[in-house]
Amino acid sequence: MTCNNPVVVAAAIGMTLDLLPLGKRARITAVDWSRLVAEEALRLQALGIDAGAIVSISHRGVFAGRDPIALSIGRMTVALRRVHAQAIAVQAL
């Protein structure tokens, strides 16, 4: 089944959001919703974090940690955790 997993496939050719360098713009290619709790998936979709959206990471972590992440999407800034970002495949622009 793993070969059909969009995130695994995307990761093979691109990368997941948590690895995107700070400030680099990228397009979301796929989201592995199965890795997220239903409410979290709904919340991300409501905020427009879905395939096709263009995002960039504007801030990452506190005290040199890698969590949480502040994501720029459109004219919004959304905070999320690294575990969420790992379920999101992106292609750098």
Partner: peptide, 10 residues
């Protein structure tokens, strides 16, 4: 329970 997430608009 499962570790909770954090998704929030700033």
């Amino acid at each position: 329970g499962v570790a909770s997430g954090f998704i929030m608009e700033l």
